[in-house]
């Protein structure tokens, strides 16, 4: 039995797993431990793809497994390293090349659940980050924005490329309690996490956005649970529009009653308009297309 201490991140696990695999150490002989204390802010290899030169020809591993492992690594379940290694072992040494294609396998299902949870967290980060304009910090005509977000898992690095591609033309930072990411138009860089107080509390546009949110809501179709399934309360504290939710819900009943109690309006005759007249002529001449195309 041997203990392997790694930093809680994909690259660190991958390097250790490769060494174990080359030495032929089976999964049941390994105990995986996270490095205590300062964690993973400065990964062992800055650009891991280049820094690792395997001493022997590398084992062929399905790319799908590496993608899966990269996602699963961001999860916080302490079992993830050992399950990942067990699955890797079975694929490479156990003759189960198609293991990932077996959705009924216990380990595969576990990995899949973790991947899903991380994927959902990522998707919510892409959706719910709110950038705030930092006034007076335009450098060379570029606006600068700062956002605060609290992801559930360690996904800042997984989430960053999306923001880089979408917001190339502005400078931005996303601050989180664990790790921060910054874009300056040239490259992404990462710094340690900060407290929430480091981020701006609001943006001048928030009021306009709230006006939009209020107006696009249809009180005649109240479905609070559907909203909360997709936008759980834990995110509300960082969403400027969430302050409106309560009043919109409580006010909706009387708004709908008002609509239903309003007397129907009479038709208004068509105004004099050349286009409308032409249209009326066409409509009168157009045969009924009723069953056409069916």
């Amino acid at each position: 039995m041997q203990s392997i201490v790694i930093q809680p991140e994909f690259e660190s696990w991958r390097d250790a797993a490769r060494r174990l695999l080359l030495r032929g150490v089976p999964p049941y002989e390994v105990v995986w431990l996270d490095e205590p204390g300062e964690q993973g802010l400065f990964p062992t290899g800055a650009s891991p793809r280049e820094t690792i030169t395997p001493p022997e020809p590398a084992d062929r591993v399905p790319a799908a497994f590496l993608d899966l492992a990269r996602m699963v690594s961001a999860h916080d379940d302490p079992r993830r390293w050992s399950v990942l290694y067990a699955v890797l072992w079975r694929i490479v040494r156990g003759g189960e090349r198609h293991l990932l294609g077996m959705p009924t396998d216990r380990d595969v299902r576990l990995l899949d659940q973790w991947r899903k949870a991380v994927g959902r967290d990522l998707h919510k980060m892409h959706a719910f980050v709110r950038f705030r304009l930092v006034e007076g910090e335009e450098v060379g005509g570029r606006e600068a924005y700062v956002a605060w977000f609290e992801p559930q898992y360690r996904i800042v690095r997984l989430a960053s490329p999306f923001f880089q591609k979408r917001f190339t033309g502005m400078d931005w930072s996303i601050l989180t309690p664990e790790e921060c990411v910054h874009w300056d138009g040239e490259s992404l860089h990462y710094t340690p996490g900060v407290p929430r107080t480091e981020a701006p509390a609001g943006d001048a546009l928030d009021d306009l956005w709230r006006s939009y949110y209020k107006s696009i809501f249809n009180p005649a179709r109240l479905k609070v649970r559907a909203m909360q399934a997709e936008m759980p309360k834990k995110y509300w504290k960082n969403l400027p529009e969430a302050t409106l939710i309560r009043d919109l819900i409580t006010g909706s009943g009387s708004r709908v009653e008002g609509m239903l109690g309003t007397e129907g309006r009479e038709e208004k005759p068509a105004p004099k308009n050349a286009y409308l007249e032409k249209l009326a002529e066409r409509n009168a001449g157009q045969s009924s297309p009723e069953e056409e195309g069916q």
Binding site: H123, H126, A127, F128, F162, Q164, K165, R166, F167, T168, G169, M170, Y213, I216, F217, N218, P219, R221, L222, K223, V224, R225, A226, M227, E230, M231, L239, E241, I245, L248, I249, S252
Partner: peptide, 23 residues
């Protein structure tokens, strides 16, 4: 928006940036 001075990207799964109480 890579290589431009602007913003914007499309092509992935759609993102719902918020939800109103009508779900």
């Amino acid at each position: 928006s890579r290589g431009s001075m602007g913003v914007g990207s499309t092509g992935g799964a759609g993102i719902c940036h918020s939800y109103a109480p009508d779900g």
